[in-house]
Write a protein that binds this DNA or RNA. Structure first.
Length: 680
DNA sequence: CCCGATTTGTG
DNA sequence: ACAAATCGG
């Protein structure tokens, strides 16, 4: 026990292999491994049933691994992780706290708080990168600014001057800290009514880090080589199935990369083109996961606010009936419905089908994407805030490199592509099982005799399309022109100085979640040992730092560069050769008109871990100096104080449309930007 | 084998 | 909408 006692705070890093926080604890001496279950901290992102099931299994698995190494996992039920950490410190006499970084907005705030409070108590706190290949603040363009498109990000990512760290081996043994006065709480993740449904999950999935490791190996030695060939099949078992493992940190991306690269070299030497392409595609999907953290870090509101503001006035269809039809897989479009039934039944969907159902949701039904994202959150086994936010924003056309907003994908044709024989549809829609392949993706066109022979009565045992594709196209155009009018009116009001009136907050306020989001079968999860009110979506308030941030007009005139670089980005200490003054000059050159007078106020405060602050200043002479693996720079941003929030109500996390347009003049033609900007 | 037409893929 | 890949005369 020479070095003292360390708390290793497990979160979404439920593994003993390549876990730098755990390794640091072991190096220091005795270890108290702790997991804190504080779902109330997640706001309305309380984990869904299947996600909780996975977590439960994964924790049990981790505990058993820790036991075989010499200690045990302490579990705590809490509503406030930081005060629980303090209790654990007191009851174990620990002097160090180690944990691994997370990048979702709530974690950034919470972890910063943990670091401040524990440090003030004399605890040495250090944090590590365990979730990403490169930390978000290490991947920047030549001017030191974060990228705003995936392609540019990925290009830089692949040509970083140094490799990601090699994965660490698991510790050989762990000296257990004294936990005799730190009893575990029993964590309850499922109620009685969940058990039946959850029992099925165990047949398909094996949570836990060593199972994750097996899944990784099996994928890399098996389906990986065919990944590019098979990726378009809705049905096939050719995906890696790693996403839930990755979400909970049961396997490290560093190890994934490490193993994939071995194959990459091998296949490159063999001249195996398909293999090389497969590797590149698979790595790209790993890259999108990295990018989702990157986006979340740089734009902390991107899970609830569009990154681009150009759809601010879009009249979304607020129709809970349509929403329900989508959830229940009763839209009348077989491929969509099959996907939604699979999601409900299994908590899983092939990536292709996620795109199909979400694109249908946004473009055909024109429902607000956050509803869809929330439903994914509640039902997906691999629900992941950052990845899902990126995905939905991509589909919704609110990213600089997202899909065009006016592009409507037709599920019928997607059906031909992804499920050419209709097998997928037949599996999940038994009512269509007898329909010939010719009609399987558009039963509404089938002759009456065919339908009869198949036992289908449209509108009765299988619905007619809830919205026709042509109808959807028409409505989309109408909605867009309505949006332009609103936008122009709002702009005019602003410029007349009559401001306030039209359009400010009312239209741009996020559309609340419907109260009745639950399907009938979807019962409330047990709220553990705590007396809490029943969770309804209306209760699930927006985290406090967001509520004051409704976007207003300002983003039209404030430039993207200033918004992003100065305000919204969660900054970390920079050890680059470009100092803040220079940066500002560079930024101001590109950015024209800002009307803001207060743009020097940091929106998010910059904080670093104590220890690292010294490290990074010491290194500050070299621009690309590499951070230590356990350097523990903690990216954090803090909620604005109330007095700032008024001034900064201009969608700090968004990308101003004007400069976006300059960079991407070809996109979104239908938006008719020129016309808009001339009105002003 | 070249070049225009057509299809495919697009984060 | 556009570029890249593929097709076919």
């Amino acid at each position: 026990m020479s070095g003292g006692r360390s708390i290793v705070w497990f979160r979404r890093d439920l593994r003993v292999e390549d876990n730098p926080a755990l390794a640091a604890g072991v190096r220091t001496g005795a270890v108290v491994a702790v997991f804190i279950w504080a779902p109330e901290e997640e706001g309305h992102y309380y984990p869904g049933r299947v996600s909780r099931w996975w977590l439960k299994q994964s924790l049990a698995h981790l505990d058993s691994s820790l036991r075989s190494l010499g200690t045990t996992l302490v579990t705590k039920r809490s509503t406030d992780s930081v005060s629980t950490l303090l209790e654990v410190v007191k009851s174990t006499g620990a002097t160090n706290l180690f944990f691994n970084h997370l990048y979702d907005p709530l974690s950034l705030v919470r972890d910063h708080r943990a670091k401040e409070i524990l440090t003030a108590q004399g605890i040495a706190v250090r944090s590590f990168n365990a979730d990403l290949l490169y930390e978000p603040w290490d991947v920047n363009d030549d001017q030191g600014r974060p990228f705003t498109t995936f392609a540019a990000f990925w290009e830089r990512f692949l040509s970083m001057p140094y490799d990601p760290e090699a994965p660490l081996l698991p510790p050989k043994r762990i000296i257990s800290g004294d936990i005799s006065r730190c009893p575990s709480d029993l964590l309850i993740f499922e109620d009685e009514s969940d058990k039946g449904s959850n029992a099925l999950l165990a047949r398909a999935w094996s949570p836990g880090w060593s199972n994750a490791d097996k899944a990784l190996t099996a994928f890399i030695n098996g389906p990986l080589i065919e990944y590019s060939k098979n990726r378009r099949k809705a049905d096939s078992a050719t995906t890696s199935f790693l996403s839930p493992h990755l979400h909970f940190g049961e396997v490290s991306v560093r190890k994934v990369l490490h193993l994939v690269r071995i194959k990459q070299v091998l296949w490159a030497n063999e001249g195996n083109k398909a293999g090389e392409e497969s590797v590149n595609l698979f790595l790209k999907s790993i890259g999108l996961r990295e990018y989702s953290r990157y986006m979340s870090f740089n734009h902390p509101y991107c899970h609830e606010q569009p990154l681009l503001g150009h759809l601010k006035f879009f009249p979304w269809v607020v129709d809970e009936g349509l929403f329900k039809a989508w959830r229940q897989g009763r839209t009348g479009y077989p491929l969509v419905d099959a996907g939604m039934r699979e999601l409900w039944a299994t908590g899983w969907l092939h990536d292709r089908i996620r795109v199909v159902v979400s694109s249908f949701f946004v473009k055909v039904l024109q429902l607000p994407w956050r509803w869809g994202m929330k439903y994914f959150w509640d039902t997906l086994l691999d629900a992941d805030l950052e990845s899902d936010a990126l995905g939905w924003q991509y589909i919704s056309g609110t990213l600089p490199d997202g899909r065009e907003f006016d592009r409507i994908d037709n599920p019928q044709f997607e059906g031909y592509k992804f499920d050419p024989h209709g097998e997928y549809v037949r599996r999940w829609l038994p009512e269509l099982a007898r329909l010939p392949t010719e009609w399987i993706h558009h039963p509404w066109n089938a002759p009456e005799s065919v339908l009869q022979a198949a036992g289908i009565e449209l509108g009765s045992n299988y619905p007619l399309p809830v919205v026709g594709i042509d109808e959807a196209k028409g409505r989309l155009l109408e909605a867009l022109s309505e949006m332009w009018q609103q936008e122009a009116a709002s702009r005019a009001a602003i410029e007349n100085g009559t401001e306030e009136g039209l359009g400010d907050s009312s239209e741009s306020a996020p559309i609340a979640f419907p109260q009745d989001i639950q399907m009938e079968e979807n019962r409330e999860p047990v709220r553990n040992n705590l007396p809490t009110t029943i969770r309804r979506y209306e209760d699930q308030m927006v985290p406090s730092m967001t509520s004051s941030l409704l976007r207003v007009e300002e983003q039209e005139t404030s430039s993207y560069l200033q918004n992003v670089a100065e305000d919204s980005r969660a900054e970390v200490p920079r050890n680059g050769n470009v100092n803040q003054e220079q940066r500002r000059d560079i930024l101001n050159q590109g950015a024209a008109q800002t009307t803001r007078s207060n743009n020097n106020l940091p929106y998010f405060s910059v904080v670093s871990g104590l220890r690292n602050f010294e490290d990074s200043t010491a290194e500050s002479s070299s621009s690309s100096s590499r951070r230590e693996r356990d350097g523990g720079v903690v990216p954090v941003w803090s909620p604005p104080t109330a007095s700032y929030s008024e001034q900064f109500a201009g969608d700090e996390s968004g990308i101003g449309t004007s400069s976006y347009l300059q960079r991407h003049p070809q996109s979104h033609q239908i938006m008719n930007w020129r016309q808009l900007s001339q009105t002003g």
